Amino acid sequence: MQDDRSSLDGPRVVLLAGGAGGSTFAVGLRDVLVAAGGSLTVICNTADDLWVHALRVQPDVDSMLYGLAGVKDAERGWGRAGESERVSHELREWGLGWDWFALGDLDLGTHIARTSWLRDGDGVGAVVERLNRRWELGATLLPMTEDEVDTFVELDDGTIHFQEWWTRHRAKREPRGFANPGIESARPAPGVLEAIAEADVVVLAPSNPVVSIGPILGIPGIAPAIRAAKAHVVGVSPIIGGSPVRGMADVCLRAVGVECSATGVAGLYGARAAGGLLDAWLIAEEDAAEASRVAELGIHPVVTPLWMKDVALTRTLAADALAAAVPR
């Protein structure tokens, strides 16, 4: 983690993240880095984006934006605090919209601004940068790509958008697999590869490894850039005691044939020494018995508390992730 910069500078950290858990972890990591004089760049999943009412909605980007801005609804874990849904109710009176995907009024303001800028010709990266200016985030937020690469869920009777499967059906319908049409020709958003190349540490957040982190790594050029980076690569397990911390990662892992365990997800990412991504992997105290299995993969296991039940615990976890990045 040493270069020609002043020793007073803290580490430059790149975080790959998506979802509510990813935004919670990002806030703790931002806080630790700000105190240390470091910097944080978040590469955010955009594969759960969709068009609603002719508006481009980016759930993971907005969850990250609201979380870093301190305006996220802490009780729900997503959306804006102090939200109302009068517009969504009115749209349903006109026969529009879905009962299972109501957009809040404040949230709609974000989607209208985003879509307006997109219609004016701004790229997704420029739009996210404009959204960044609204609040003092203490971090730089980048989309994984400017191309539309939505996630679709393959079921026995057809294919549906990820948001319908996740939000409407609560992942109760067993998936056969997941698809990201167009991902093979997508390009990393401006600044993504540069941030990885310049990073001192790359962290994989405790986000869903299949539908949040997976699409980011699936953008051509991103995974190879991480493998080639001078940075130490650390991941935080989204599995505690054999179960996902939140969400339905177990269903997603089963669909891709991966064991729902800290070791299973570590194996999915792989050891950088063996052509994978990870140098170190944080696993929960509840999974301490798996440390030897993780080590057998060629990944350094770090056993530490993973529950992000409050701000202090989240900051401690973030500090543990940075400590794991110190070369041994």
Rank of each mutant, 00 (worst) to 15 (best):
G95S: 12
N132Q: 14
H161P: 08
S88K: 09
H53M: 13
P190V: 11
W51M: 14
V61H: 03
D310T: 10
L40F: 01
T110R: 09
R272Y: 00
V311F: 11
N180D: 01
E259C: 02
A284H: 04
A319I: 09
P11R: 04
D147N: 13
I226Y: 09
A288M: 02
W307H: 13
V245W: 05
L253P: 05
G125F: 03
G158C: 02
L282P: 02
R80E: 13
D150F: 14
V326P: 01
D320F: 01
N132Y: 00
I112R: 10
L253I: 03
L204F: 15
D9P: 00
R119K: 13
V14G: 01
I240S: 02
G38R: 11
E290D: 12
A324N: 02
R176K: 14
V211I: 14
A271C: 00
E93W: 08
H53G: 06
T46Y: 02
A280Y: 03
I222M: 09
L306R: 04
T159R: 15
L204R: 10
R227F: 05
R170V: 08
G177D: 06
A47E: 02
P11A: 08
E259K: 02
W135Y: 13
E164K: 14
G125Y: 04
R246T: 14
L96W: 14
G125C: 09
T151G: 04
Q163G: 00
R56I: 04
S261T: 11
P238S: 06
P175K: 07
R56V: 11
A195V: 04
G177I: 09
F152N: 06
L15M: 10
P181N: 02
R76Q: 13
E154T: 15
A231E: 03
E85G: 00
L193H: 08
R315K: 15
G241D: 07
L155P: 05
V303K: 07
P215C: 06
P327G: 03
A274Y: 04
D9F: 14
Q58V: 04
A312L: 14
